[in-house]
Design a protein around this nucleic acid. Structure first.
Lengths: 331, 331
DNA sequence: ATGAAAGCGCTAACAG
DNA sequence: CTGTTAGCGCTTTCAT
């Protein structure tokens, strides 16, 4: 395996001191252009790459951040991760990814490992906005940003704007001429369920449509529940012509159930999902119109906010609600 | 933000030199037990945590590895990542996760960043066993292990044993009393398609069942294709009583299509999928019997193999085929 | 049994 | 314009 080239090698080869070499390579200090060029050329020829660890030791910056998540399955974490990575790569920042599940000890081990490795900051992310990670991150020697998970009030927390997202979904259904719109969603124990349901009701009201509490059906986040909800709805008399689902899996169950009843989507009923989980949304028949939470963008913003904090720049504390986007497909 | 405590602080507070403090904390050297205990106690009281960067500078080990993947969606990468992390956490190793998509420049940037940060080794992983990452990892100053992606012949490469997995699937169908078993799989351009098809044919033959080339239907990796394949199969005369699918999505399409034709699964036809993608496999009706590639275990092994390489221990080079497991559900 | 000193690779004051 | 020196936090000979 090739030996690593140090700045001493470069300095020696260029016939200068390491200080000069350092300055030349970092474009700091002042020196003859030709010296600078020569040193740079030598460095390139030797394939010199500075040891980031050594650099960090003095600079107090490791250009490394930690991403902590309790989302084992990665449905939400991965887009966030991709956004962070993409947003920070040109600052030369790398990301430690740690999955902590619901295990406080494991979480502590990972946080300690990150701190020992001098991460510049930590991003905490999760699968539930209303559930904190199993570890207290509030008195760490580095800044912390929360994404898709609750942080303390004085922290920066990024979440998708559920209110706006749900509103966009319902407004779309109304724009399709739908008038009897129901909402099939997840368990009432999730805060997003309330927020989306609330936005749903308000949007109907604003459009002068009847708002009926019975039109909000709460169940699990599964296909099966979407299926069952349709069975319930179609056993009554007033069938809806628009269904806003709490997530794409429910929507998938709904669409499948409707097809089995020979109810045509979107002719007879329009369906809108939530999450834009492409693997689900693109495979429904017809493909699912849904709300995209723009998680990648959320990740990018989280990363950038963290770096601003790291750099001591001012960052507005509190809850950042990032806009969702309606993705229109065939349903 | 709390100031970091250094070994100098500990040494000073304990009234010893840093050398002694270091020895006490690392359980090296020899000294009075009481001195050691006192130093340790002081360190604990002060909340001392050694700076891993400084330590790495001398030890030449960063206890950090890089995970490179082209699997944006993360379907395969995440379990592998979880396995690596889980397998290495008690050695104090952290993982940099980098998604490089198919972008050679991006890949190079990430690899360089990792090397600059002195990763002890790199694990390359991907979504296709027969496609290399868009970057050459063969002349790096650190060891590399490949998982779910092709590496050079002299490298360690871990893949699921497709032959054994497919065999297990078909044997299960035969054990269910199925005699007319077809194989609905993905595009012929994937190597796994050939391997699984080959194992399928061989297993039938070994059981004394007729092997027919027309019984292998190649298409895309989608639900839609599973659906279409059933349409094709049921338009002919000899309908199968067992279907081995190339992945779970195809299997899902197959099961849905069968239900639409009032063909009962598993009474009339047994279906086996591949991947054990729980989100799909558990939501089919009935839940899908499928093959699990044990990716988390594969990740763990990859991590352990890499660390053995890092430690200069002997590791058998070449292709490691790890066993798959049949997961029996309702189909 | 303990400590002084050197050094890991790099950067930054400060001289020359 | 360039080099000497000190130091980042820790480990490790080598003296004492």
């Amino acid at each position: 395996m090739p030996e690593r080239v140090t700045i001493y090698d470069v300095a020696a080869a260029a016939g200068v001191s390491t200080a000069t070499a350092s300055k030349a390579l970092n474009d700091t200090g002042r020196m003859a252009v030709e010296t600078r060029d020569r040193i740079r050329r030598v460095a390139r020829e030797l394939g010199f790459r500075p040891n980031a660890l050594a650099r960090s030791l003095t600079s107090k910056r490791s250009f490394t951040v930690g991403l902590l998540t309790d989302d084992t399955y990665g449905r939400f974490t991965l887009p966030v991760m991709a956004g962070i990575s993409e947003g920070l790569i040109d600052q030369g920042v790398s990301v430690f990814l740690c999955t902590v599940e619901d295990n406080p000890e494991l979480a502590k081990v990972h946080v300690d490992a990150m701190l020992d490795k001098q991460v510049d900051g930590i991003i905490a992310t999760g699968k539930r906005i209303d559930k904190p990670l199993p570890v207290d991150l509030s008195h760490l020697p580095v800044p912390v940003v929360y994404a898709l998970t609750v942080g303390p009030g004085e922290a920066v927390t990024l979440v998708p704007d559920d209110d706006q997202g749900a509103r966009a979904a319902v407004e779309h259904l109304i724009a399709q001429g739908r008038r009897r719109i129901v909402h099939v969603t997840g368990p009432g124990s999730f805060r997003v369920v309330h927020e989306r349901a609330h936005a749903y009701a308000e949007t109907l009201q604003a459009a002068g449509l009847a708002v009926d509490d019975a039109a909000i059906l709460r169940g699990s986040w599964s296909e099966r529940w979407g299926h069952d909800a349709v069975a319930t709805l179609w056993s009554g008399k007033d069938q809806p012509d628009g269904i806003f689902c709490g997530n794409d899996q429910i929507a998938r169950g709904v669409i499948d159930a409707l097809r089995e009843r020979n109810v045509d989507v979107p002719r007879d009923v329009s369906v809108v999902g939530y999450d834009n989980w492409e693997i689900v949304a693109e495979q429904t028949r017809p493909p699912l119109t849904t709300i995209d939470m723009n998680l990648k963008e959320l990740g990018r913003q989280a990363g950038l906010a963290l770096m601003r904090l790291v750099n001591g720049e001012a960052v507005e504390k509190g809850l950042w609600k990032l806009p969702c986007t309606l993705v229109v497909r065939g349903s």
